[in-house]
Design a protein around this nucleic acid. Structure first.
Length: 472
DNA sequence: TGAAATGTTGGGGCG
DNA sequence: ACGCCCCAACATTTC
């Protein structure tokens, strides 16, 4: 029997020490604190992380462990079904309590409920906390008591609630248990790619971890937010916060972002615009919780009958940035290289896949899930369905992005497309978004011909989407 | 967080 | 001076 009683803090998508309610509760329990992370790739209904996310996870866990070490603690790593692994750790450490911050996907909720019940039966205290959302889905409903299906009224209702609480400070010190249960070695999880090591672009672009997340937020508020409304849509400019991977892993909380933005920039139009992007994230989780797995099933059932095309070659060209449309190819190559793509370009590439190529949005969703460092179960599905037109409050079916016009409008000098598609370099600005019209177009072995002609592809898409409306 | 087609307006060239 | 046409610019409708 250990001398000291123990509280377990189970870290999941909240890899931070500040504004972490579960961690604070463990500290305030007065017991020794055992921080745990479980790599759960086995529980049914829980989607395993993609390759880029695994890369990020490795580094984020490493950073979290380093921070814990400074507080006199260490992170315990276990791999396997979390229900079993947490229960084992409770036994091994004779813990009296387990604390965690809530997740919202159905698989995680089911698992957490089962675990909570099992632990309660053993007399172990379990407490769970709101940490990853500003407003939890059950806090928000329409007048009629139903979940919102449209963003604007949803966000208006959120804004009528009292503003989010002040973020919690990080603990100054953690009391370590007498006997720390043994931990897996992080490297033994093989989260990093080796053969081949394709993570070079990720390393050049990102520094995972809570400290880096805070620096990114501070930079954004100091240098970028002021001009957010002018530059957030320009992919050549660093006009967005680039906080998405930090937020996806919970290295920073939406509450910290909210608080920092409003205290430094007040209620300005720029703040409002930026916070509404956080609002879209909240809305995505609201939909996920109320309507189930949006990454597999179209929100609008009539889309089950949609005549998607099967075209391996076109899908492959899209994935690897060889569609012949510069803005699409630049985006897909930025994604492949850095694990991230500018939001404006995400919309353009997604529209191209679903409307120009008529390929099922699920293929796009899956590719983004695997390649994005910010892959988020709710955001990814909601936004894909928004573009495809199958979602709640979705873009109407006839809204088809023209990749040439989008390029000319948001990348007028072609800086972005030349950065990611260097073979377009010599083309003048006038034709860089439509190289096939240039006086000297690049030869097909330098830059591919267009996979489809947009005008015809648009007509084909409108016909296909109209057929859906008739049959519905 | 769209684009294209269609409609309207008004200035300027021209007989 | 005037009417006519053309067409760019802008507005509205449609997909």
């Amino acid at each position: 029997m250990p001398d000291m009683s123990v509280s377990i803090v189970w870290f999941r998508n909240d890899l931070r020490l500040s504004d972490n309610p579960a961690l604070v509760a463990a500290v305030e329990s007065g017991r020794a604190v055992l921080p745990v992370f479980v790599l759960d790739e086995e529980t049914d209904g829980i989607r395993p992380r993609g390759a880029a996310s695994r890369w990020w996870l490795h580094h984020s866990l490493h950073a979290l462990d380093e921070s814990l070490r400074k507080l006199g603690s260490r992170l315990v790593l276990r791999r396997g079904p979390a229900e079993k692994k947490i229960a084992d750790l409770v036994s091994q450490s004779e813990a009296q309590a387990v604390y965690w911050n809530r997740l919202y996907d159905q698989g995680s909720r089911d698992r957490d409920d089962r675990l909570k019940t099992a632990l309660a039966r053993r007399g172990v205290t379990v407490e769970t906390f709101k940490a990853n959302l500003l407003f939890e889905p059950e806090e928000i409903s329409t007048q009629g008591g139903n979940p919102f299906k449209v963003f604007t009224p949803f966000w208006r209702a959120c804004r009528k609630l009292p503003p989010p609480d002040k973020p919690l400070p990080a603990p100054k010190r953690l009391l370590a248990p007498d006997n720390r249960p043994k931990s897996d070695a992080l490297t033994a999880w093989h989260l990093l790619p080796t053969a081949p090591d394709w993570a070079g672009g990720l390393r050049e672009t990102w520094t995972p971890g809570e400290k880096s997340a805070k620096a990114a937020l501070a930079n954004f508020l100091d240098d970028t937010l002021e001009d957010y409304r002018r530059t957030h849509d320009l992919p050549a400019v660093e006009g967005t916060s680039r906080l998405s991977p930090h937020l996806a892993f919970g290295e920073i909380s939406p509450r910290q972002i909210w608080r920092a933005a409003t205290t430094t920039h007040g209620q300005s139009a720029a703040t409002e615009k930026f916070l509404s992007e956080i609002g879209w994230r909240e809305f995505s989780y609201h939909l996920l919780l109320h309507f189930g797995d949006m990454s597999q099933r179209s929100f609008r059932p009539e889309f089950n009958a949609f005549p998607w095309m099967t075209d391996r070659k076109a899908l492959d060209a899209w994935r690897h940035g060889r569609t012949g449309y510069p803005i699409v190819d630049a985006g897909m190559r930025e994604l492949w290289r850095t694990g991230w793509m500018h939001n404006r370009v995400r919309m353009v590439t997604a529209s191209f896949l679903t409307k120009d190529l008529l390929i099922d949005w699920r293929h796009g969703e899956r590719w983004f899930w695997d390649t994005l460092v910010d892959a988020d179960i709710a955001n990814n599905a909601t936004n894909w369905q928004w573009v495809a037109g199958s979602g709640a409050d979705a873009s109407p079916y006839f809204r088809v992005f023209n990749p040439v016009l989008q390029g000319e409008k948001f990348d007028p000098e072609g800086e972005y497309v030349r950065r990611w598609v260097p073979e377009l370099g010599p083309l003048p600005d006038k034709t860089v978004h439509k190289p096939w019209t240039a006086s000297e177009p690049p030869s097909a072995d330098i830059y591919p011909e267009r996979a489809v002609e947009h005008g015809a592809a648009r007509d084909r898409a409108l016909t296909a989407f109209r057929s859906l409306r008739k049959s519905a």
